[in-house]
């Protein structure tokens, strides 16, 4: 292959992306060593004070821990449910086309606007859910003011919004699977369950990994549902790093400290995702067809 061609393909995109993000990224790194806040504008130099403060910030690390289970839990549920409905929509149910459209709809809605609708569903006095509960004679649930239910409420919103993402990717994957392995399994007389475990699932592994990684990245930024429904409350029971960073950066206008928190978040996220990626790669390799 002639020289130069590979570059023609990669470089325009790479350069454009770098051109857009290089300044913000360098700026963010630089600003973490300054004290830019509401009354101190500009890039002075205060050394590692922000980083030291972050190390002591229990609220930040608490939100990180919370994020771990919130993101892994929601993505796991989304994956399981998304896979299940993708299998149904793949074959074997009537009116597939209708259900495919229906099940895609949540992803098409704007999360920040749907969060307002969800708030009007979960809100305890005039919300739809407690309205239904009271109609069937049950006691209202403190959806937003008790730590347990509040976390459940946020999980429900995230599952509703993003399961379709998994659904679509997995369904497209299923539709593109080659037919031969399934025929072979049928000839062997394998049960439906065995076919799934030995044929479908392993063949779906690469796609699953990609979808899970992208969802993990986006789920880790979980913000709209938290901010709109609970503001991180009760107390700090639902506060995620994105919500906490939002408060520091925009409400308190601590540009420098907020950037420090975000940069640490970026580093940890890249590390975690790399590890997860490696684990997935190892898990999926020796199997296959």
């Amino acid at each position: 292959m002639k020289k130069g061609y590979p570059r023609f393909f990669l470089l325009p995109g790479l350069i454009l992306l770098i051109a857009i993000i290089i300044f913000p990224l360098l700026f963010t790194i630089r600003v973490t060593f300054s004290s830019w806040n509401v009354s101190q504008t500009g890039l002075n130099f205060i050394g590692g004070e922000n980083w030291a403060e972050m190390a002591r910030d229990t609220r930040y690390w608490g939100s990180m821990l919370r994020l771990f289970y919130l993101s892994f839990l929601t993505v796991a549920i989304q994956y399981a449910l998304g896979f299940a409905i993708a299998l149904f929509a793949w074959k074997g149910i009537a009116a597939r086309r209708f259900f495919r459209v229906l099940w895609l709809i949540p992803m098409m809605t704007t999360p920040s606007l749907m969060a307002i609708i969800w708030r009007s569903i979960f809100t305890e006095d005039i919300g739809a859910l407690n309205g239904i509960l009271s109609r069937v004679g049950l006691n209202p649930v403190n959806w937003l003011t008790e730590s347990g239910p509040a976390n459940i409420a946020i999980t429900i919103v995230e599952v509703w919004q993003w399961t379709p993402f998994m659904f679509l990717i997995l369904l497209a994957g299923l539709l593109s699977l080659p037919k031969e392995p399934f025929m072979a399994a049928a000839i062997d007389g394998a049960s439906a369950w065995k076919t799934f475990a030995r044929v479908t699932f392993p063949m779906m592994a690469p796609i699953s990994i990609g979808a899970i990684m992208i969802r993990l990245i986006d789920a880790s930024k979980i913000f709209d549902s938290v901010f709109t429904m609970t503001r991180g409350g009760p107390g700090n029971a639902t506060e995620t790093p994105a919500a906490y960073i939002f408060q520091r950066s925009l409400q308190d206008f601590q540009i420098a400290y907020g950037s420090t928190l975000a940069l640490m978040y970026l580093i940890l996220a890249i590390l975690t995702l790399t590890i997860i990626g490696k684990v997935f790669a190892r898990l999926s390799k020796p199997r296959g067809i």
Partner: peptide
């Protein structure tokens, strides 16, 4: 790694990019 570099652009929470993008 290059692919991961592309994908990693989605990781940063947008709030902190407000000021730098604004300046840019």
């Amino acid at each position: 790694d290059i692919i991961f570099f592309f994908v990693s652009q989605r990781i940063m929470p947008p709030v902190v990019l407000a000021i730098p993008f604004f300046l840019l």
